[in-house]
Amino acid sequence: MKSLLPARRPGRLVALVTAVTLLAAPLAVVPASLAAPSASAATATSVTVKKIGTKTAPYSKKATIKPNVTAKGKVSVKSKTLTVAQRGKYVAKNKKSVALKAGTYTVTTKVTYKTYRLTSAKKKVWSATKSKKLTQKLVVKQGKRPSRTAPVSKYNCPSWAPVKGNQSGIYHVPGGRYYKVTTPEVCFTTAAAARKAGYRASKNG
């Protein structure tokens, strides 16, 4: 009498035994040198020139900008300079820092540097001088106008802050009787600003 069960094929049995053997085998150990980056790779040498962010200049004054450069690893930065132009004319060339009033500028940051490697005797072998540049548009914004400022001369305040405050704690407004002859110690934009600062109005104008 013939069996009703399908005949087992030798090839399928071999494949099944092989699969079970592979699953039971221990995982291969990955060498430590391949499992994680080396310490030297983690401290790779690099020099990066970054953009200078938008600046705000104090009212009627200037904002100072400096190169934005980062360096790490086996490197020595020799110089970091700025060249600034506005409307096709140079404002500064190869300066370590530049003071700029409100406006839009073209700024080029340049860095020169050398890299080195260590010999077996721990001596540094230097490369030739290298350089990197980055050119950008930089906006310097105008700061908010203050409510008070210093006089521009012995008897005069700036036109935008015409109210004179003297050493007696009295303020004088334009057109007042003693306005022209008053020597101001501080100038205010408005009479209200002078009162807020503790000054009182002149009784004689």
Rank of each mutant, 00 (worst) to 15 (best):
T109S: 05
Q167Y: 08
T104E: 12
T81S: 06
K80S: 15
K93S: 05
V186D: 02
N68T: 14
K55Y: 11
S3G: 05
K61C: 04
R117I: 12
M1V: 13
V91G: 03
A7Y: 06
A201Q: 11
G169W: 01
T183Q: 14
K154L: 15
R145W: 04
V14I: 15
V111M: 00
V84L: 01
R87Y: 12
P31D: 15
S79W: 00
K50Y: 11
S60K: 13
A32E: 07
T83N: 00
K180V: 09
V186F: 02
P26H: 06
P151M: 05
S3D: 09
A63R: 05
L5C: 08
G103A: 04
G73F: 13
T183L: 02
K72G: 12
T119A: 04
T81K: 13
T149P: 04
N204E: 05
T81A: 04
K2N: 09
K196G: 12
S60H: 12
K132W: 00
K101Q: 10
V17I: 15
P151K: 07
L134Q: 14
Y179T: 04
Y155K: 13
T83E: 00
S131W: 07
L4D: 13
T112K: 14
V152D: 12
E185N: 11
R148W: 08
K51Y: 04
C187K: 07
P174T: 10
Q136E: 14
K61F: 11
K180C: 00
K203F: 07
A15R: 12
V84K: 00
A25T: 10
V98A: 04
P174Q: 07
G88A: 09
K66L: 07
A41M: 13
L13V: 13
K62H: 09
T21D: 01
T81L: 10
A197P: 10
V111L: 03
V125N: 15
S46F: 03
K154P: 06
S33F: 07
